[in-house]
Every structure is written in structure tokens, then in C-alpha cells.
Design a protein around this nucleic acid. Structure first.
Lengths: 252, 252
DNA sequence: CAGTGGTCTAGACCACCAA
DNA sequence: TGGTGGTCTAGACCACTGC
């Protein structure tokens, strides 16, 4: 029968909900391999494509992952907590309890580091940095990997005229990072804006982050302003949406 | 030929990228109807299911939408900008330029308002509010609709013992909202924590937000602390991820 | 080499929409 | 009533994994 069950929900949604409940009940341990999709399809009495549709939803959610030629596995990755406003006084608030559990203290590996001067600047970056016609930018690009899993891509854009000759144009910007170097140049960042949105990944992002095409990414654009209100850096980050919890604390 | 094109990308990714480029070039105006999926499939030389897979990616992204029995349309919704830290001094920074364009000044309609006392409190809420065994909470639930499109669900949880007898337990909490009433009760919020993560929607969220099952949602949990560091409210929001740009500004 | 997930096809039936 | 999107099926071929 292709009759939908009582609630009139499509099969793949019903099956996804059922599987989600099974996983959250803990029938499988993190890292465990699930039965193959053909076995599952037979168990649930649906075609394997329908089964895949349900599994795809859970994968988009980060609950399970698939390895081609191998099988489906229960995801065991603990999300990373990213503190957006790190400088505020340490909180004893509410005994530090948070809504979602996530790790704070792991530090990621960084690879795929490139520093280049670019003439072709994305329009939205050029506008925020208030670039003149044909002005070039210094682009610092890198990838963050946590426990062998790529979790974030980041690209910093700085006006080339501002940073030319400084260590910012080198792969290693020295102690304190590029913000310390900007301070040396008289443009210490004093204010930040972070803008967050969620999108589906591009083909390149799918490849570099090793995520499935149906997993969304968080785009976080951080603009740094110096004391005169000039935008001196735009850092555009692209995160695996299942890998992060973003955290902002502030006073009323 | 089912041979993949030069870059070895699957057809549906290549087609999605091609369509995305067409849309961003502006060949179709916002609100325009696209050719039907069978027509598109013939144009691109693929099966209609493959075409649907590509269209589904763009829909997850919020670029297009589909209406059953009618067709595919170019989405014309302008994202909403939500300022997370509204109280900081107005910014003249960078002439107020932002990375992504989004509207600031529309105000949404609110419906589906309920205020109830609940004994069954989700575990993660109970922990943050530091509830005793069997303690109940006041739950204020509502839905935000912008231009006839549901964009956010929100549910506030407050300890019932704290708010019993106050206007907080009524549908209309009076001028200044519940934060003013909390202040009246001697528990004015002085500090906030916002935690953000991205998930696939539940069946209920799909229904209440009228979003496709493959569109992710932003879960934003806002915890309010009073001057003694007590968590007095948790507001759990669920947003259509394509409808919002989140914005945080703060000093270094 | 057998089994697995990933992609793709052709075609079916349904619910919904618009004329 | 004809066209549209939404769901579902059965089956094909491929690339990859692990024995």
C-alpha cells in the first residue's frame, strides 16, 4: 500500500522522525555503523530511494554521516562553541550553564593557508571596505580542521595600501596575529560587526569542507573597524552548520 | 551519455550552479514563474527527478520557491535583519554599510499567541533555569509573520513561581513587555546570552513555518539573567534560515 | 570481488491549481 | 480538465571500501 499513515505525512518524513527517535534514544552508540540502506529500506518497507531521502534529512542535520562504499554511521562529533564576544568579563552567570552542549577548549588545526594580492574583489567586500576603483586587497585564506574533519573556511580581506610591507602580507603575521599588526600600523580594531546567514554550499565549499551537498553552511562575515570608523578588515567565514554553536554574551 | 562534464561534478550540482548564475544575473525578475520542471529537465537534457534535485538545492537556499500545482517562482523576499545587541550606540561606522542587504524596519505580525503553565519542561530548559523537581514554567508561545510569510516561531520559558500573578501570565504583558514586568518584580534582565545553531526542521516546524522539509532552520536560544546572575527567561526561537540575517555589533 | 553508497533514468500515481 | 509539483517505485551503472 502506498497509503500514507494516519497523519498524512510523506513516508520519508515519518521514517526520518522514527529514525531520529531511535538515535536519540541511544540504540546505537556514536560511531556505530547502521544497517545498509537496502536493509533499512526493506525493514521500513519502502524503496531504497525513499530510504535515502529520510537518511539524507538526518545527515543534513548532522545526526548521521555516510561513507561511500562503506555504510552509514552515527555521527560522534561534538559541536564547537564559538564565542563571538570573547573579551567580556568571565561569566559566573547561571553557573555557566548553556542551552546546548558544545566543546570550548579544543583548538583546530589550520591548513590550506594562502596569502595573495587580488585585483578582483567581490562587490560586497569592496563596498564595505570602501575601495577605490581598481584598488587591490590582501586576501588571507585558510581552512580549519578539527579532529581530522574540516569545519570552517575563512578568508580575510584587507586593503592592500593599508597593509603593504607589513607582516600581514606574510603567511605568519607574528605574535598577536593580524590585529596586533593592524595596531602597529595605527589601525587597531576597536569595533566589530558580525553578520550571520545560512546558505546551501557551493560546489567548491562542498569539496573543501567534505560535506554533503544538502548540508547547509553558516556564512559569518566579521567586519573590523578602527577608531575612526574605517572598515579595515572583512573576514568571511564559511562553517559546516552541523559543527558549530555560535555564542554571544552581552549586557543589557 | 551519462558521462559527467569535465569537472567531474554530478549533473544536479552543475545544473544548480548554472541556474544560480542565471538567477543572480537577473534573467528572471523576483516573483517570475520559471519554466516547469519537465521543460527545464528537457532543456538541460536530464530526467525530471535530477532536475528536481537541482531545484531543491536552490529552494533550500531560498532563491526559488515552488507552489504545488502551479510552478516554480523566483523568490522575492528580502531577508530580515535581526540586531542581536540593539542597545549599543547607534553606529556611524563604515557609513552603516553591511555585507548583506536586508531590511531593518519592517515589523512583523504576531499570531498563534498562547500563554500556558506547563509541568513538562524540556530537559535543557529546566537545567538552564535551574528548576527544582516538578517545578512548572510559564510558556509564552507565538509566531511571527512578515508579509504573509511565517518567518519565526518563539517560545519563552519563565519559572512559574517567579511570574505567578503578574501580567506576564497574560496574553498582553503591558507596556515594555515582559522585561518591564520582570523589572517590576525585581528581576530586571541585565545580561543576555544568545546561542545559535542550525538544524533541519521537525515536522511540526515544517507545518507551522510553511517551509519545505529540506530548508534548514536557525535555532536561537536567548537566556536572560538578572543582576544576581539568575537565569529568569529562556526564549527559544526557530527561524526560517532563508528569511534572516543575524547581526551583532560590539566593541573590542 | 562482493557489498556499499551516489547518481541517474523512466514511469507511475496523487493532490492541487488555474482556466 | 490538463498541467503542475510531490512522492514513490524498480532498476541500472558507477566509484569506492574492505576483505
Amino acid at each position: 500500500m502506498s497509503r500514507e499513515s494516519s497523519t498524512n505525512q510523506p513516508k520519508y518524513l515519518r521514517i526520518a522522525a522514527e529514525l531520529r527517535a531511535i538515535l536519540e534514544r541511544g540504540d546505537y552508540a556514536p560511531g556505530d555503523r547502521l544497517p545498509g540502506e537496502n536493509t533499512l529500506a526493506a525493514d521500513f518497507g519502502v524503496a531504497s530511494l525513499t530510504m535515502r531521502q529520510a537518511l539524507g534529512l538526518l545527515r543534513g542535520e548532522g545526526l548521521v554521516g555516510s561513507r561511500k562504499g562503506s555504510g552509514w554511521y552515527v555521527e560522534d562529533f561534538r559541536p564547537i562553541r564559538r564565542r563571538g564576544i570573547p573579551r567580556l568579563a568571565r561569566d559566573q552567570w547561571g553557573s555557566g550553564r548553556t542551552i546546548w552542549s558544545a566543546d570550548d577548549d579544543r583548538s583546530p588545526d589550520v591548513d590550506q593557508v594562502t596569502v595573495t594580492e587580488e585585483a578582483a574583489v567581490p562587490q560586497h567586500i569592496a563596498e564595505v571596505l570602501d575601495l577605490a576603483e581598481n584598488e587591490t586587497v590582501c586576501v588571507r585564506s585558510r581552512r580549519y580542521v578539527m579532529e581530522n574533519r574540516p569545519v570552517m573556511l575563512a578568508a580575510s580581506y584587507l586593503p592592500q595600501v593599508l597593509v603593504a610591507g607589513s607582516a600581514i602580507t606574510e603567511a605568519n603575521p607574528g605574535p598577536g596575529g593580524i590585529y596586533a599588526r593592524l595596531a602597529d600600523l595605527g589601525h587597531a580594531p576597536t569595533r566589530f560587526r558580525e553578520e550571520i546567514r545560512v546558505r546551501m554550499p557551493s560546489g567548491e565549499e562542498v569539496a573543501r569542507l567534505s560535506i554533503p551537498a544538502d548540508r547547509s553552511v553558516i556564512k559569518l562575515a566579521r567586519t573590523a573597524f578602527d577608531s575612526e570608523g574605517r572598515a579595515v578588515e572583512v573576514n568571511e567565514m564559511t562553517m559546516d552548520s552541523a559543527a558549530y554553536v555560535l555564542d554571544y554574551e552581552f549586557d543589557a
